[in-house]
Design a protein around this nucleic acid. Sequence first.
DNA 1: AGAAACTATACAACTAGACAAATCATACGC
DNA 2: GCGTATGATTTGTCTAGTTGTATAGTTTCT
Lengths: 236, 236
Amino acid sequence: MTRTPVWKSIAAALEADIAAGHYGAGDKLPTEAALASRFGVNRHTVRRALGDMSERGILRSRRGAGVFVEAPPTEYPIGKRVRFHQSIRATGRLPQRRVLRLESRPGDAGETKALELNAGSMVTVCEGLSLAGETPIAHFISVFPQDRLPGMLHTLEEVTSVTEALKLNGVADYVRRETRVTAEMPSATQALHLRLRESDPLVKTVGINEDMEGNPVEYGQTWFAGDRVTLTFSND
Amino acid sequence: MTRTPVWKSIAAALEADIAAGHYGAGDKLPTEAALASRFGVNRHTVRRALGDMSERGILRSRRGAGVFVEAPPTEYPIGKRVRFHQSIRATGRLPQRRVLRLESRPGDAGETKALELNAGSMVTVCEGLSLAGETPIAHFISVFPQDRLPGMLHTLEEVTSVTEALKLNGVADYVRRETRVTAEMPSATQALHLRLRESDPLVKTVGINEDMEGNPVEYGQTWFAGDRVTLTFSND
DNA sequence: AGAAACTATACAACTAGACAAATCATACGC
DNA sequence: GCGTATGATTTGTCTAGTTGTATAGTTTCT
């Protein structure tokens, strides 16, 4: 008789609730147990509905915490000027960076080549997370030439915006020379930091920013949580 | 689908930090609360990681004071006497070897030359993993001269320490004649065995041990997981 | 008979919050 | 200058709640 499975109608009911504004982005749904009793079914049946919605990106569950309504993906424009803080602020959320590592060391072959330095030149490395509000968006490793920007290490300890840090080091403006995009699977640590499963793919961008004289000032690798961000390219 | 528990990734990340020298012996780690927010998890999850590391002797915590680095994961001294079991035990952890391959065969050109044997002489080969506690530290291939040490093949089946195996074959003591160090990227198999990404570099050492009469008794190649081990050289 | 949907139970992993106990830094009194 | 009181920090412990996963059994439809 029941042509449609129970779990599908549960998913539909929950989607209707969300569409009606009953639950907004970021809100916590009732617990699986509560939903199970509300719909008069077993918890596993609810879980199937929730699992389906999670796969479609509507929900995200955190073990031990609950199930939450996911925000629609952030539009991240990549063009001549790539500015993280501006992009996030445009979506009405608070851009943040959390620094995981900050060090000076000799650059490896790839880094010195990208920054057009002599082999073995010192570089300043900043690794961290980009957040929109509370949600981690991306994991990045930025490499700066230390001889051209000797004060970056110190500046980055106090300033979280790259744009601002560069400005404080004499780079008033900078533009993106090139951006390469690939897909990668997250390492265990990345999955942890970005709060996603090891099976969720990342979008990796490798980019070089140069100052107005054409000198490279930053070689950056960024791993975006694929389903939280939509990269958009424009030639402006 | 979280294959590796979160707390294990946290422990691994902290161990890597310690191995990289971000926190030295005796240093105080960030507070549990700070680590929790850095990794985006609950404090209890951090505590589980710290507890695991404490059990392995890497950390020591004092109520009200903080968590301190007891011993860096692996300071691996390379000098006249290179003793894997001693080095690991000194860090308060259980040294282990897991044998992957054990065989006798004619030695190739490089092996017979290093061991000062006639071309085509038989050698005993032992390939395996070195572990500190649960953590794989290195992948090694040891080659022994079979005519000087005919019993090694059998002894190595029962004894995990090279020092002990050599002693049982009449080599009471031995010293390192020379050690060469290079960097290599791991093969897929090595990455798997050492539980690291194929992008994580290895430190490769090639060494010759000789008995007190100056006869080579072991020609060993070892690939260390670069972020878990710090090789230290001394001329004692 | 077999597959799909659903139920039932149990445990592991993680979150959340609260409070106790030890430690540390600082100000105060003398 | 020195000991002490005090309050903030930090780890240790406890209770409770939530999601993830595994196993096994029942119903229903074809």
